[in-house]
Simulated scan of single mutants.
Amino acid sequence: MIQLSHLSADLVAPRAADLSGLLAAGAHLARAAAGWVMVVSVDADWRARALHRELQVRDVPVEFGGSGGVLQLRTAPTAAVDRLAEHWAGGRMLPDGFVPGPGALRCWTLAAGRPDRPGFRLGLDPAAPQLHIGLAAACAELGLAASLLGGSATDPALRIVGRRRLDRLADLVGTPPPGCPPGEFPGSPSSR
């Protein structure tokens, strides 16, 4: 029997601020005539569908399409995305005291999480190396101390290892989304 923490993404109400996890994963903010939009690129249909759902439950209109194996989700301009752009200085600066909540960590994992034996990696934006150390510190605040991989140029990520940390990650991000291949999401049968 699995017992969920009271801090699991499955049990915490979704908030628009959770979309900060997408910025941690490398989503980009762009100025539009009516406000800011967020663009997220992913490499798998299950990721696009799961993120589409995460955006919808947070009342952020989104459409997705793509080509060449890359799927893109693009939000409509909303007050929620405008607030993120303000707090993240257009996606270029980590807000003071930022610690991702369970929903933000779930969004980050859906967008850029990968199994990496013996652990799990959370992808980072290679175009925003100024965020990497701060995001590592924010994960440590959650009990998810991680190693920074890849530097700023090649496939940067935070690697989380250790049974206790991986269990904590699985607990925080909640259950795998529908259509997720076994082992691709923390806590799924072959990810342990």
Rank of each mutant, 00 (worst) to 15 (best):
R163C: 07
A157P: 00
L105N: 04
A85N: 09
R83W: 09
T109F: 04
G143I: 02
V81R: 07
T154N: 10
R106A: 04
R106Y: 04
A112I: 03
P126Y: 01
P100D: 15
L94Q: 07
L142V: 12
R163W: 06
R168W: 06
G113V: 05
P100Y: 00
A89K: 12
A157W: 04
T109S: 11
P156S: 05
P95Y: 10
P129A: 11
A111W: 06
D96V: 11
I133D: 14
M93P: 02
R92H: 13
V173C: 03
A138G: 10
D125P: 01
D171S: 15
L148N: 11
V99C: 14
D125N: 12
R114M: 08
A136S: 13
A138E: 03
L149I: 07
F120A: 00
L169D: 08
A127H: 13
F98R: 05
G123Y: 00
G174S: 10
G143T: 07
G174R: 12
P129L: 09
R117D: 12
G97R: 04
L149Y: 08
L158P: 00
R92Y: 09
G123D: 09
A138M: 04
T175Q: 15
L110W: 04
D82R: 03
D171H: 13
G143W: 02
V99M: 13
R168H: 07
A146C: 07
H132L: 05
G123P: 06
S152A: 14
D116V: 04
P115D: 06
G143M: 02
V173H: 07
G90P: 01
G101Q: 13
A153K: 12
